[in-house]
Each structure stands twice: as C-alpha cells, then as structure tokens.
C-alpha cells in the first residue's frame, strides 16, 4: 500500500479526498497543541477574542515532546491521546481547523463535527516518537510561550507518516478494524 503524499496546511479538496485507512506522508507545517493550549484557544473563541494563530486549513498535532538535546530540533515526539482534546475540538473545527493528528478514539460529537466541516483525523504511531522526531525539520513557538512544552509550536515536517482514522464522509478506521479482523 503506497502512502499518499499530502501538503499541510490542508485544503478542503484534498481533505475530502482522503478515506479512513489511507496511509499518508505529510509535508509542510503543522501546529502543535495539547490540553492547556486547547483550553486557551476555545476560551478566546468563546469570548470573541482574536486567536494568536490562524487555524484555517491547519493541521494540529497533539504532542508533548521530550526536551531536545543541545543542537537537536526536538526530542521524542509521538502523538498523545486525542480524546482529552474532544471537549474543545468542535469549536476549533468551526474556526477553520482542517485536520488533527493524535492517537485513539474520538467522541461521537467530534466525529460528527469532522464530517460537518469536511475535516480529517489522522493517527500517528504511539511509541514511535524517535522516528517521528526525525521527520520534523524545524520547530518554533508561535503562541502562548508561557505554557513551555505546551506552547503552540509550528513544526516543519517532511514525509511525516500518519493514517486516516476519521474521514469527512463518516468513515472510521477504528470502528471497521474489529469487523475486518475480529473473529
């Protein structure tokens, strides 16, 4: 199965062509955010403040890397569990977010919002943080520097491997898996 090369930020057309189970290699830039940054972004949206980053067509990566060694771009950088971001995700999708990379189940509310906004949820392999770090060629803080490792970073990635779990048409790889391989 040859992976599809896609570019981030991710346009609506490309997003809607992806299907659950597709393997992709992502090239371009991602934003990072986990629990604390999600909380701030949604609070800003709720109070009508401008966001410190434009979310339109962006892919957000749920990651809390290990500290970089001197001279390294980033430490181990695999995905964290996505479900913790579920309460915040519909608001970010409504603000233009196009994709998310994490691991594990999304809530029914998030899965519906993915379809409604023509978005896509990818999983990267948990426990492959050292391999994924090598696919990150630059990292800079772009918002909330006071959050330290949880600040929003912009990562430049080259052939970053991920799998489509939830697509814009309601496809769900996790739900299909047991049906296909369960006995």
């Amino acid at each position: 199965m040859e992976p599809k090369r896609i570019t981030a930020p991710l346009d609506a057309d490309t997003a809607t062509r992806l299907r659950a189970g597709d393997a992709v290699l992502i090239n371009g830039t991602l934003l990072t955010a986990r629990d604390a940054a999600h909380k701030r972004l949604t609070e800003a949206l709720a109070s009508g403040e401008a966001l410190p980053v434009d979310l339109r067509d962006q892919i957000v990566y749920y990651v809390g890397p290990t500290p970089a060694r001197p001279g390294a771009i980033i430490g181990s950088a695999g995905p964290t569990t996505s479900g913790r971001m579920d309460p915040y995700t519909p608001a970010l999708l409504a603000a233009g977010l196009r994709g998310m990379i994490g691991k594990g189940h999304r809530s029914p509310v998030v899965r519906d919002a993915i379809v409604r906004h023509g978005a896509v949820y990818f999983a990267a392999v948990g426990g492959a943080g050292a391999l994924l770090a090598r696919r990150i060629t630059a990292a800079e803080v772009v918002a909330y520097p006071d959050l330290g490792p949880e600040a929003i970073h912009r990562l430049t990635v080259v052939d970053f491997p991920a799998i489509v779990v939830n697509d814009a048409h309601g496809g769900d790889l996790y739900a299909d898996a047991a049906g296909r391989y369960g006995e």
């Binding site: 990651v63 809390g64 890397p65 290990t66 060694r69 390294a72 430490g75 181990s76 950088a77 695999g78 964290t80 948990g126 426990g127 943080g129 050292a130 391999l131 770090a133 090598r134």
Partner: peptide, 13 residues
C-alpha cells in the same frame, strides 16, 4: 533510532 540517537522511544517517559 532511539538507541542510536539516545532519544527516548516514546515522548511519554
């Protein structure tokens, strides 16, 4: 890679 680069296998150490 983790062994060669002395980078943790997983970011959750």
């Amino acid at each position: 890679i983790a062994e060669a680069d002395r980078v943790p296998m997983c970011q959750d150490t």
